[in-house]
Simulated assay, not measured.
Amino acid sequence: MPFDWFVETKWNKSVSYVIKTKNVNGEDSSLGMVSMFAPLLIIMTIIAGCLPSANDMFAGEKEKNTMEGLLMTPVKKIHLIIGKWLAISTLGMISGILSLVTFVVFIQYFTENLGKALDLFSHLGIFSISLLLGIVLFSLLVGMILSIFSLLANTVKEAQNYASPVLMLAFIPYFLLAGTSINELTNIDFLIPVYNVYALIKQLLYGVFDMTSIGLVTLSIGVVIACLFAIANILFSKSKWILGKS
């Protein structure tokens, strides 16, 4: 963060120099720290909430040979996969929301400078709304990705091996945006899946509400989820993937 350094001279019997710092970029440093922690919070909590349930609902049922009994029920396969996907995503949302509440309470009551950042321009409300929006979008996306990996696997351990390396890629946008100012964000940034969720959260945390950005993120994530759902539906209709080696 750039600083403007200047020297203040006081004349008494001797000359003394006092060095002061002044923030010249117009952004609150505490708010900047919060905007760095918030996306990382979303990444870890949502993945941690979705991963165990996703592995168990598809690969786990194939491993325990309970998928056949589920398919014998008078429920359409598309309804089964939608129900499982929404259940996985909901667990991720709950995990993210609980972490959000804990994070806000900790900042407000156990810190001094970070707590002031959320009070500026009613940032507490902006902070909560922005993270809730990011939690919902990211949970739906992660839930669908993990469902596909679980469908491809025959055991829970195999599903974990498939998902772990790919999910590490979700941390890349966080580091790419760490040194990016909100003034540098363009419409293209809000069209790149995963990257756009973090960009939107960072923009909202600084009090910038742009309906175009929100619409682009929602549209982009929606298209990706629709494509992934089509792939998952095809896999779920094939005995090779739905029943595994059994």
Rank of each mutant, 00 (worst) to 15 (best):
W85I: 06
L86V: 11
A87M: 07
A87G: 05
A87S: 10
S89A: 15
T90A: 14
G96F: 00
I97W: 04
I97R: 01
L98V: 13
L98P: 04
L100A: 07
V101H: 09
T102V: 12
F103R: 01
F103P: 11
V104R: 01
V105P: 07
F106P: 03
F106H: 05
F106Q: 12
I107T: 06
Y109M: 13
T111P: 14
T111C: 13
T111A: 09
E112D: 11
N113S: 08
A117Q: 08
D119N: 12
L120S: 15
F121L: 00
F121M: 03
H123Q: 14
H123S: 14
L124N: 12
I126P: 06
I129N: 09
S130M: 07
S130Q: 07
L131T: 06
L131A: 07
L132M: 12
L133C: 08
G134S: 08
I135G: 07
V136I: 11
V136D: 14
L137V: 01
L137T: 02
S139A: 15
S139C: 10
L140R: 03
L140C: 14
L141M: 06
V142K: 05
G143S: 02
M144T: 04
I145S: 00
I145V: 14
S147I: 11
I148V: 15
F149T: 10
L152P: 02
A153V: 15
V156P: 01
V156N: 11
K157M: 09
E158R: 03
E158K: 05
E158M: 12
E158T: 02
Q160W: 04
Q160K: 07
N161F: 11
Y162P: 05
Y162L: 13
Y162M: 13
A163R: 04
S164P: 11
P165F: 14
V166Y: 03
V166T: 06
V166L: 06
M168W: 11
F171P: 04
Y174T: 00
L176D: 12
L177Q: 12
A178G: 07
A178P: 00
A178N: 10
G179D: 15
S181G: 01
L185S: 00
L185V: 14
T186L: 04
I188M: 04
I188Q: 03
F190I: 12
I192H: 02
I192C: 04
P193M: 06
P193W: 01
V194G: 04
V194H: 06
Y195D: 14
L200Q: 08
I201E: 03
I201N: 03
K202V: 05
K202W: 10
K202T: 02
L205H: 06
L205Y: 06
G207R: 09
G207I: 08
F209E: 01
M211G: 06
M211E: 03
T212Y: 03
T212W: 10
T212I: 11
G215S: 15
L216A: 12
V217Q: 13
V217T: 14
V217R: 08
L219F: 13
L219Q: 10
L219V: 08
I221Q: 05
V223R: 01
V223H: 02
V224A: 08
I225L: 09
I225M: 08
